[in-house]
Design a protein around this nucleic acid. Structure first.
Length: 440
RNA sequence: GGAGAGAUGGCCGAGUGGUCGAAGGUACUCCCCUGCUAAGGGAGCGUAGGGUUUAUAGCCUUACCGAGGGUUCGAAUCCCUCUCUCUCCGCCA
């Protein structure tokens, strides 16, 4: 959520920054609403002040045993007018809140301006794609011919966009998460956290998934919800509904929702391994083959809660932490600075890490690292006490370190051998009892 | 699932319809005193808004005592619903 003060004081500037990411802010509508708000709020508060003053007088007079009927008569007429003003003000403020909640973050000045993925800027490229002396197969062929990857059965169990891993490959998948967690906790100073996978609507609002992107989420009603619904006129109360997390960013970042963190406790650095659930509505026909785009996948997520003055340094650092995993696995990748039009709703700046996939002959996203500045913190009211002892919004950021399923894909493709086997990257072998090759 | 208790400021804790945004304590900040790893004295100290203003200063003002509704001229206090916490019993990985 953007600071409404900024909108009031610098509307045209904000509008043009939002335009860079393809969001058209109706400035005239905003100003009209704001004008209305100002008038109604002033009037409401004047009426409230009058009522409060009169009520106080009644109290004082009664204490002295004086007659209060004159004051009572004076304040009696206030009721209806005040009620109407309060209702109107509430409606206007709700409208304003809706507007604010559906406005994306403004891109940082260092973000390249552009419309789509095609305008993203390559920052650096690390590692050289291997040259194959045989035609490289994609991860589906490699995994299925080893009998370690089974999409048909996963489809039978659940449907499209689910994966079944077996044997050595299931273990490799587990080894990857262990390796990532060990690296981030042991070398990069993150605290490992275990978090809920079902979260409430407040948490989803806090990190920006709601109210705008509900269709991307899976949700469940509590088992006793039906009973509750009957008594609520058929409306679904928020408290009865829980959402499956689309990323650990949601539960982990919400650790600081409605909290005031001590200055000396910053930065907070958390790492969590969780499953992620995405409905993938609107992605029909994209990446239908293989495990690139799934309804359920695993991710190791890095989250930092930082002092505002440090947030862009922290983004570079966090991106570096994610890159470390790719370097250790010796997977070729590149770092892309997302352009204004391709960034996510809540981000002020984002780097994507893209890993080389030989079968697709291209780089594909395997991590996304973003600085949200105070955008999420304002929604969450996540603050710290600054050096003047005043509460101030923190800056939040996160990045995948890494998406485990996609890392598995990258290993299967980059480490495949002509005989159909797959070499295990050396850093993972200790996690696999020394296994050097996946083979049939 | 059953029975009961509770939710107040950073923390503890008073307050059952009227000068309560809220006593007191503690923590914190500043000052004084004190020649020492302490004590004493004084002052300050909630959050989010709105108006005014060059001003994130000051002044005026509104809301907030778990959340939402209601009664009332007036609600931390009364009523209703919900959420959460604690204790006991039951069940359970």
């Amino acid at each position: 959520m953007l600071d409404i003060q900024l909108l009031r004081n610098d509307l045209d500037n904000i509008a043009s920054r939002l335009a860079a990411r393809g969001f058209a802010l109706d400035t005239a509508a905003f100003q009209a609403l704001e004008g209305e708000r100002k008038e109604i709020q002033t009037r409401t508060q004047e009426l409230q002040a009058k009522r409060n003053a009169s009520s106080k007088l009644i109290g004082q007079a009664k204490a002295k045993g004086e007659d209060v009927s004159a004051i009572m008569a004076d304040v009696a007429n206030l009721g209806d007018e005040l009620k109407a003003a309060e209702t109107l003000l509430e409606e206007i403020q709700a409208k304003m809140q809706d507007l604010l909640l559906t406005m994306p973050n403004t891109p940082h000045e260092s973000v390249p301006v552009g419309k789509s993925e095609a305008d993203n800027v390559e920052v650096r490229r690390v590692g050289t794609p291997r040259t194959f002396d045989f035609p490289p197969r994609d991860h589906v062929d490699v995994g299925e011919s080893l009998k370690l990857l089974d999409f048909a059965t996963a489809t039978k169990i659940s449907g499209a966009r689910f994966t079944l891993l077996k044997g050595q490959l299931a273990r490799l998948h587990r080894a990857l998460t262990q390796f990532m967690l060990d690296t981030h906790t042991g070398e990069h100073g993150y605290t490992e956290v275990y978090v809920p996978y079902l979260v409430n609507a407040d948490s989803m609002r806090g990190t920006g998934q709601l109210p705008k992107f509900e269709e991307d989420l899976f949700s469940v009603l509590r088992s006793d919800a039906e009973e509750g619904l009957a008594g609520m006129g058929g409306k679904t109360p928020n408290s009865q509904k829980l959402y499956l997390i689309p990323t650990a960013e949601v539960p982990v970042t919400n650790i600081v929702r409605d909290e005031i963190v001590a200055l000396e406790d910053l930065p907070l650095k958390f790492v969590a391994h969780t499953p992620c659930f995405r409905s993938e509505a609107g992605s029909y026909g994209r990446d239908t083959r293989g495990m690139i785009r799934q309804h359920q996948f695993e991710k190791v997520e890095l989250v930092q809660i930082v002092h505002p003055s440090r947030s862009f340094d922290a983004l570079e650092e966090l991106t570096g932490h994610a890159e470390t995993i790719l370097k250790r696995l010796e997977l070729p990748y590149r770092v892309m600075a997302l352009c204004s039009g391709d960034m996510g709703f809540s981000a002020a700046k984002t780097y994507d890490l893209e890993v080389w996939l030989p079968a697709q002959n291209t780089y594909r996203e395997i991590s996304s690292c973003s600085n949200f500045e105070s955008f999420q913190a304002r929604r969450m009211q996540a603050r710290f006490r600054n050096d003047k002892n005043k509460p101030e919004l923190v800056h939040t950021q996160n990045g995948s370190g890494l998406a485990v399923g996609r890392t598995l894909v990258a290993i299967l493709e980059n480490y495949q051998n002509e005989d159909g086997s797959v070499t295990v990257p050396s850093v993972l072998r200790p996690y696999l009892g020394g296994l050097e090759k996946l083979s049939a």
